[in-house]
């Protein structure tokens, strides 16, 4: 039962990364292109914006119901970066909505845009830092150690920072790919293809940096990776997807691009997961938190699973209906 719920958790996380990521990336992309991308992404994403973010809540709920010690330990030791993420989420979400709904006036809109863009960057970066902290294994639960050792050191390191940057690039890349399907103007399509290609190159570079920085921090991410066949397969597939993306970018195939980019992200996340599993959080000076030793009792997992299945049966068709209503069409008619 625990495994089934974990699987749903991973899928939710993945959906959050892909769908929410494209949306976070929208802000980053606006920043990167100095406003040229403004509107493209947010217009496309506005109707599905709220729904995309509920995936995060699902992840959190599955964690504290099904794997409570993961939830408590991570939120205690990574309190600071998580708080930064939360503040970012508040600013981003509000600014996005305010920009959309405030009456048309130039100055406030510019301010909302700036807040939206910078907090997208900020939030994504610290989301990556937090994930880095969870993966790296510098978390300690010996709370007698000093403040720095417990609450700062696990995330203030090269690896977490590399993860932060990787996350920023990944989300920007997803947003760029996502936008291409929404564009009509050939010049703009060319512009976004160019950006996507640059982001692909940057992603490959920073991706290697992630492994390198783990090595510097004294962790064996790379050999762990070599020893896990599943993650080998995932990463190879993710890499193979790159040239395909390149070709598709040249041919301007909107929906296919999204599919391949989504596939690639899925491979990255599952590759990471394959390296980790069955460990959920690595602990420096104690037993690691695993699926087994953190799972809630069977009764809890059982009912959680039932709720999740019922939930999915209700949510998925509604989600499809929502996307169908607003997406996969090129005419950008205004909502009102």
């Amino acid at each position: 039962m625990a495994e089934a719920n974990l699987l749903i958790l991973v899928v939710s996380l993945l959906l959050y990364v892909v769908l929410g990521g494209a949306d976070f990336g929208g802000g980053i992309l606006e920043l990167l292109t100095k406003g040229k991308a403004s509107g493209v992404v947010s217009r496309a994403i506005a109707p599905v914006w709220e729904a995309n973010h509920v995936w995060l809540i699902l992840v959190v709920v599955i964690l504290f119901v099904g794997f409570p010690s993961v939830y408590s330990t991570v939120l205690t030791t990574l309190h600071i970066p998580v708080l930064l993420v939360l503040i970012g989420i508040i600013f981003r979400g509000s600014a996005f909505t305010f920009r959309h709904y405030d009456i048309d006036e130039v100055r406030p809109k510019a301010i909302y845009s700036a807040i939206f863009q910078y907090s997208s960057l900020f939030t994504t970066f610290f989301l990556g830092v937090t994930l880095g902290g969870i993966i790296l294994g510098e978390i300690s639960t010996n709370y007698q150690l000093g403040f720095y050792q417990i609450y700062i050191h696990p995330w203030l390191n090269w690896f977490s920072f590399a993860m932060g940057i990787f996350m920023v690039l990944l989300f920007a890349f997803l947003a760029a790919i996502f936008s291409i399907g929404e564009l009509k103007d050939d010049k703009q399509v060319a512009y976004f293809s160019r950006i996507s290609k640059r982001l692909i190159i940057a992603l490959v570079l920073v991706g290697s940096l992630v492994f390198l920085s783990a090595q510097i921090s004294g962790h064996s991410l790379f050999s762990d990776f070599l020893h896990s066949p599943a993650s080998n397969v995932s990463i190879v597939l993710a890499t193979l997807a790159l040239p395909l993306l390149w070709v598709l970018l040249n041919k301007n195939k909107g929906n296919l691009l999204r599919l391949v980019a989504g596939f690639q992200t899925t491979m990255i996340v599952s590759g990471w997961f394959a390296i980790q599993s069955p460990i959920l959080v690595k602990i420096k000076d104690d037993v690691d938190i695993t699926v087994q030793n953190s799972s809630a009792p069977y009764q809890t997992q059982f009912y959680l699973f039932i709720v999740l299945v019922v939930g999915v049966l209700i949510i998925l068709p509604s989600m499809v209906y929502l996307y169908k209503t607003f997406h996969f069409e090129k005419n950008g008619t205004e909502p009102y």
Partner: peptide, 17 residues
């Protein structure tokens, strides 16, 4: 968490909808 998680999970579903 494992005890009172049920309503939170239903709540999550309701939010989603």
């Amino acid at each position: 968490g494992p005890i009172f998680g049920m309503p939170f999970s239903w709540e999550g579903t309701a939010f989603f909808v």
